[in-house]
Amino acid sequence: MSGGVDSAVAAARAVEAGHEVVGVHLALSRMPGTLRTGSRGCCTIEDSMDARRAADLLGIPFYVWDFSERFKDDVVDDFIAEYAAGRTPNPCMRCNERIKFAALLEKALALGFDAVCTGHYATITTDASGRRELHRASAEAKDQSYVLGVLTAEQLAHAMFPLGDTPSKDLVRAEAARRGLAVAQKPDSYDICFIPDGDTSAWLAERVGTAPGDIVDRTGAVVGSHEGAHAFTVGQRRGLRLGTPAPDGKPRFVLDVRPKERTVVVGPREALAIAEIAGSRYTWAGEPPADPTETFACDVQIRAHADPVPAIARVVERESDASGEPSGSAASVSSGASVTELVITPDAPLDGVAPGQTAVVYVGTRVLGQCTIDRTVSAVPVPA
């Protein structure tokens, strides 16, 4: 129970369905006195009090479990390391993967509980063989299956999402009001929960430090300078402060971030088009394809609120690059070794994809699996 309206209504529906329900709030902050600022942040002391009041109204036991150390190690430190390596991570994916459906689920099962129930908007179905599948919610505008794409078959076997069939968030708020839940009109949280002021660049600068370097074009020509590569993300246009204008006078965008070289690569808007993405850190949400090394049709989604794009995908084995790592990958392998990747080729180029993002693969409404993007292939060749 995060302290928001969705988890409160999910708990109420679980109680109404006859389950034995225990409310758990996760203490994830290393500063438990932190208060929520408007709709920024979550898991604060104010949120825990809201969750407790909802549990009291529902007549269920309520506990606060301290996962702050695990959250720091598995989500916050991972976020810092990914940015330091030039990638753009999604901390919500890591939190679902390593906290809510790993650390929390492990403890719940050890204590004899059957499932973790959350307020996510997604649905779980069971096929003819009894295998569980993760699907999109009925309300596409609120669908959260993307951030659950990291769940495995074992985790799906112990997950419940009571809000998945609800057509809209307004109906959930109205239900909360009818039930007398004080959080009925509480604003949704947004941005990164452990950076409540929203200034990601300043927050990272304190932890990663600054390392001045060059801004170059696709040919390697220096066109500007920067104070730290961590402050840049693929697709960024503003704040580049380039000393050399483009020959055609058009704006330039960040195409690649290379912190080891302290270099940021910029280029024209059309060079953000990506023809292929691949990741060695991939998982299947339930039953995988019969033979994932055979090309299969799918849809791919690269952001929580992006539209799915038709694509083909398959698992391939390829040699790592000369550095001993797949381009952009966090995985360390010996030079010349091979790496197994989920390679996804969209029917039409994707726009502004950055290593570190998560690509979730769908077949119809079903979440088939996901990968953390290690490398991308531009649809526009580098000029000679």
Rank of each mutant, 00 (worst) to 15 (best):
T126R: 12
L181F: 02
Y146E: 15
C117L: 11
L111K: 05
S129R: 13
D170R: 04
L109F: 00
I195V: 12
A182D: 11
Q185P: 03
L104Q: 04
H158M: 11
A110R: 02
A159P: 06
L104C: 06
Q155P: 00
D197S: 01
Y121F: 10
T118Q: 11
L105P: 04
Y146C: 14
Q155T: 14
V183Q: 03
K107R: 11
C117V: 15
C193Y: 07
D165C: 05
H158F: 02
D191K: 05
A122I: 14
T152F: 05
L134E: 05
D127Q: 15
M160W: 06
T166Y: 02
E154F: 00
L156I: 15
L163A: 07
R173G: 04
T125A: 08
A139S: 11
A184D: 12
K100S: 01
A102K: 13
E154R: 06
Q185M: 09
V172D: 01
R136P: 04
T200V: 14
S138Y: 15
L148R: 11
D188W: 10
D199E: 04
K186R: 07
G198K: 08
H135N: 15
H158A: 07
A139D: 11
P196Q: 09
Q144D: 09
P187R: 14
D191N: 03
I195C: 01
L134R: 11
R131V: 15
A137R: 14
A108C: 11
L109D: 01
A103K: 10
L171S: 08
V150F: 03
L163F: 10
P167A: 03
R136V: 11
H120E: 14
A137N: 07
R178A: 05
